[in-house]
């Protein structure tokens, strides 16, 4: 890994990262506040039969408990979008974008192996993903403190939530980067990576909203990140294994493919 390349990759993302970190903290703070303000209202609505319970769930999350709200906050499209900016957008364009613009050959004219380049970009993007997840979780802890409801979650489990979440998003990041080193243009790399993310998300949400399709959730990576379960001390080790294996497979693919690819002159 090249420290200079890693720093420069983070520097390219600097403004975006700062904006997303601020937004992540704000979103995290908001979740316990929404939970504190509306959980009783939602519970009464469901108990009265006026509103189906399924529609009050979102993925594996809900607003009936704080751990459920934390899960909802991390599986909400807004949170997904914040992390996906780096895990999908930045990773899919990282190499293919440089290749299309012609700067990749200027970079690779230096004494840098393709594996070093790959590892440096991956390191920077994983760090960005970790920071965004940390900002959202940090915001959630802050919001819980502000609401005075920290006794409803086991804060000691938060590092495990971060680890599981990191594993999930590392899987999308390595997939995006594997696509990026496989294509000459960023368009197809973004398309494939986004389709992978959306397919996983669709399977998870479909299963949560339609009980007959609950089996589809097992095939979604999102289903293997359940902060609510972790915060109640029920972490499934298999979930960690699945997300980290899902991160490892594209990484191995990229490590095999990238150094062997022919990089012809950009059109």
């Amino acid at each position: 890994m090249s420290g200079r390349l890693l720093r420069q990759t983070l520097r390219w993302q600097r403004v975006r990262l700062i904006v997303i970190l601020v937004a992540g903290i704000a979103w995290g703070v908001l979740i316990p506040i929404i939970y504190g303000a509306f959980s009783e209202v939602f519970r009464d609505l469901v108990d009265s039969g006026a509103f189906p319970r399924e529609l009050m769930n979102f993925g594996s999350g809900s607003l009936f408990t704080l751990p459920g709200a934390v899960t909802l906050g991390l599986q909400h499209p807004l949170a997904i979008a914040m992390v996906a900016i780096f895990a999908v957008g930045a990773s899919a364009t990282a190499v293919a974008g440089e290749r299309a613009s012609g700067t990749l050959e200027v970079l690779l004219a230096r004494p840098i192996s393709r594996l070093t380049l790959y590892a440096s970009i991956l390191g920077a993007l994983l760090l960005a993903v970790l920071l965004v997840l940390g900002a959202i979780l940090g915001g959630m802890i802050g919001g819980s403190v502000l609401q005075g409801i920290t006794d409803e979650i086991d804060l000691g489990q938060m590092p495990l939530v971060l680890l599981n979440g990191f594993g999930l998003w590392a899987a999308f990041t390595t997939f995006g980067l594997a696509a990026s080193v496989s294509f000459d243009r960023p368009g197809p790399a973004i398309g494939v990576s986004l389709a992978y993310l959306l397919a996983n998300y669709f399977l998870e949400i479909l299963g949560s909203l339609w009980p007959d399709a609950a089996w589809t959730q097992d095939y979604s990576l999102f289903h293997h990140f359940n902060p609510g379960q972790i915060l109640t001390g029920e972490l499934q080790a298999i979930d960690l294994v699945i997300v980290f294996v899902a991160a490892l497979v594209p990484m191995i693919f990229a490590i095999v493919i990238f150094p062997r690819r022919d990089l012809a002159a950009p059109a």
């Binding site: 200079r4 420069q8 200027v106 230096r110």
Partner: peptide, 25 residues
């Protein structure tokens, strides 16, 4: 020197030269 060289548009000329020579070691 690649044919029809592309450089990082968001950097200054000096930053490009610094970045590339730094990577050159």
């Amino acid at each position: 020197l690649p044919g029809g060289i592309s450089l990082y548009d968001s950097l200054t000329g000096e930053q490009v030269l610094d970045y590339l020579v730094d990577l050159q070691g």
